[in-house]
Amino acid sequence: MAAKIPVLKDAPLVIRMAGLSKRFVIRKEKSLKERIVNFGRSNKHKDDFLALHDLNLEIHAGQTVGLIGHNGSGKSTLLKVIGGIIRPTTGVIQRRGQIAALLELGAGFHPDLTGRENIFMNGSILGLTRKQLAGKFDEIVEFSGIGEFIETQVKFYSSGMYVRLAFAIAVSVDPDILLVDEVLAVGDEAFQQKCMNKIRQFQQEGCTIVLVSHSAEQIREMCDRVIVLDHGNVIFDGNTENGLSALSTSFEE
């Protein structure tokens, strides 16, 4: 096992959840006709789904947390709740510091804009000013390794190029919290290595990272804490090795 960077003593709390639940209501009809036809019976046409159930978690600055669990266990949902993209149904979530998120594929680019324009748009969404972005632009392009494709519309990018650009933008804001949802798997080996190095640098610099991954090896290598989700419940929270074995026993059941 690689040597872990010790978490700072009495590091400040950066993410706190208390009694956090997320319930999805899945309505089967989206059009007016169906709504009118089903009017009055509409409650029967709703499906409730509890994606996260009463989570109580605290994450301190400088931790690298691996979030693992079976497909559909609520990992992506939890990251979106932390990122403020999805609003929890009940409970409290508190957070501090600059956050950057790499959520599944897509990264929030606009397909018709070029890479350059997307850098400026995405950066300004993350809270950077035009001037700051202009200063970081070369660095972002350099890190992404996209080269001249930066002037091409993003819809013509390969999925690996997408992720490269997204990762380069996310790290350029020097986040205090970095959320990563599986995206790194798409990059080629060289880029994955580059990302890992960058993440290690962030760890050194006390950045808090929440990493969703199905690769036990990646989790083992990066994380100093593992949270295992199962149907929206936390079934394990603790050290990496025990977490990974908790996951495999949950698969065997």
Binding site: I5, P6, L8, A11, P12, L13, V14, R16, L20, A61, G62, V81, G84, R87, P88, T89, T90, G91, V92, I93, Q94, R95, R96, G97, D176, Q204, E205, G206, C207
Partner: peptide, 26 residues
């Protein structure tokens, strides 16, 4: 533990925790 990490921790500790909105929104 690097200095940058310590500075970051101090800066974060000085910031208030922001509560994200939950529920249907008032």
């Amino acid at each position: 533990m690097t200095d940058i990490a310590r500075q970051r921790a101090e800066r974060l500790a000085a910031q208030p925790l922001i509560t994200l909105a939950s529920g249907p929104g008032g």
